[in-house]
Design a protein around this nucleic acid. Structure first.
Length: 285
DNA sequence: CACCATGTTCCTTG
DNA sequence: CCAAGGAACATGGT
C-alpha cells in the first residue's frame, strides 16, 4: 500500500468522510502503533473531539481534531501505514479485522487503522516529521536543493532516493521507476550525477508520483455498496492490484524484457532493498 | 524450512 | 557533528 501516492489517494478519500465527525470512543488493540503515546492519553485527548482537516506530509497522514470548545488547543494525530497499514471506515457492529490496531467510534461507523505487521503509527507525536526533506510535488524540491543534498553523499543514487531527508515520500517502488525513466544507473554514486541528470531525475521523480496519484484517484474504490460497508481502501473491490502492477515498468520485473529496448531487466540488492533496472537504458555512466 | 515483502528507527563504527 | 551499514521490528506469502 504505502508510498507517497497511495497515502495521498487515501487522504483525499478519507478527508470528506471524516470531516466533522465526532470521536465517541477510542479502542486500542495493539499498543505498539500508538507509541510513544499511550492508550490512556489517546482516549483522553481524542474523546469528544471532531475531525477537521486531513492532510499528508511525505508518507505520513495528519488528522487535525477540533476541540470540544473554541478555546481548545489544536490536536493532531499522526498516522503512518508502515508496510502493510490500511485505514478505512466500517459500520459499527461489523467485526474488526484480525490485525486492527486502533478503532475510533464515530457513532454509526468506526474509523479503523489495521496493520498486519504493526510497523505503522497512529499517535500524538509530531516529532516523526522533523527530519523530512522537501515535498516532491508541492514543496521546495528544487534542482538546487536536490543537487546540494546529493553532493554530500557517495552512496548509490537509488539509496539516496529512499533517504526521506533528501526528498520526502519516495519509496522502494518509485525509486526504481524514477531512475529507469531518467536513464540513470541505480548504482551511480549520488555525487557523481551530472547537473543534467539531477534535473532529469527530479522531473521523473515528480512524474512517477504524480501519475500514480492520478491513477489511484481513478480507481473504482468500493464506496458505499461493498460488503464491508461505507469506505474501503486497500483490498478494493475488483482488479486494482493488476491495474497497479501494469503501470510499473521495471519494479518486480526481473528477467522480463525492458519495455524500451527489450534487454532483460536486472535485480540487485542495495541497502537491503530490492532494485530493478535495465542495464542498457541505465548505463553505468 | 528458507527467503522475500510498498518502511522507519536505533545502534555501532569510522 | 555527520555518513554509512546493519539489525530490529512482526506477520504472511511463496
Amino acid at each position: 500500500m504505502p508510498e507517497l501516492p497511495e497515502v495521498e489517494v487515501l487522504v483525499r478519500h478519507l478527508a470528506p468522510h471524516l470531516r466533522g465527525r465526532t470521536v465517541h470512543g477510542v479502542e486500542v488493540r495493539h499498543e505498539k502503533v500508538i507509541r510513544p503515546s499511550t492508550a490512556e492519553e489517546l482516549r483522553r485527548r481524542l474523546k469528544g473531539r471532531a475531525f477537521g482537516q486531513v492532510t499528508r506530509r511525505a508518507k505520513f497522514l495528519r488528522f487535525e481534531l477540533d476541540g470540544p470548545d473554541a478555546a481548545s488547543e489544536p490536536l493532531t494525530v499522526i498516522g503512518h501505514l508502515g508496510m502493510t497499514g490500511r485505514m478505512f471506515l466500517q459500520p459499527t457492529g461489523e467485526p474488526l479485522p484480525k490485525h486492527a490496531a486502533v478503532a475510533l467510534d464515530l457513532g454509526d461507523c468506526r474509523f479503523v487503522f489495521e496493520d498486519t505487521r504493526y510497523f505503522g503509527r497512529f499517535n500524538l507525536d509530531p516529532t516523526a516529521l522533523d527530519g523530512l526533506g522537501p515535498e516532491p510535488l508541492t514543496g521546495d524540491f528544487t534542482p538546487e536543493a536536490f543537487a546540494a543534498a546529493l553532493a554530500r553523499s557517495g552512496r548509490p543514487i537509488k539509496v539516496k532516493l529512499l533517504d526521506q531527508s533528501v526528498v520526502a515520500g519516495v519509496g522502494n517502488i518509485y525509486a526504481s521507476e524514477a531512475l529507469f525513466r531518467a536513464g540513470i544507473s541505480p548504482k551511480r554514486p549520488a555525487r557523481r550525477l551530472t547537473r543534467a541528470q539531477v534535473v532529469r531525475l527530479r522531473e521523473t521523480v515528480r512524474e512517477v508520483l504524480a501519475e500514480a496519484i492520478e491513477c489511484g484517484s481513478t480507481l473504482p474504490l468500493d464506496f458505499g455498496g461493498g460488503r464491508d460497508g461505507l469506505f474501503y481502501y486497500g483490498t478494493v473491490a475488483g482488479n486494482e492490484s493488476k491495474f497497479y502492477q501494469e503501470r510499473l515498468r521495471v519494479y518486480d520485473r526481473k528477467g522480463e524484457p525492458c519495455v524500451a529496448c527489450g534487454t532483460s531487466i536486472r535485480h540487485l540488492v542495495q541497502a537491503a532493498r530490492s532494485t530493478y533496472w535495465c542495464p542498457r537504458c541505465q548505463p553505468a555512466r
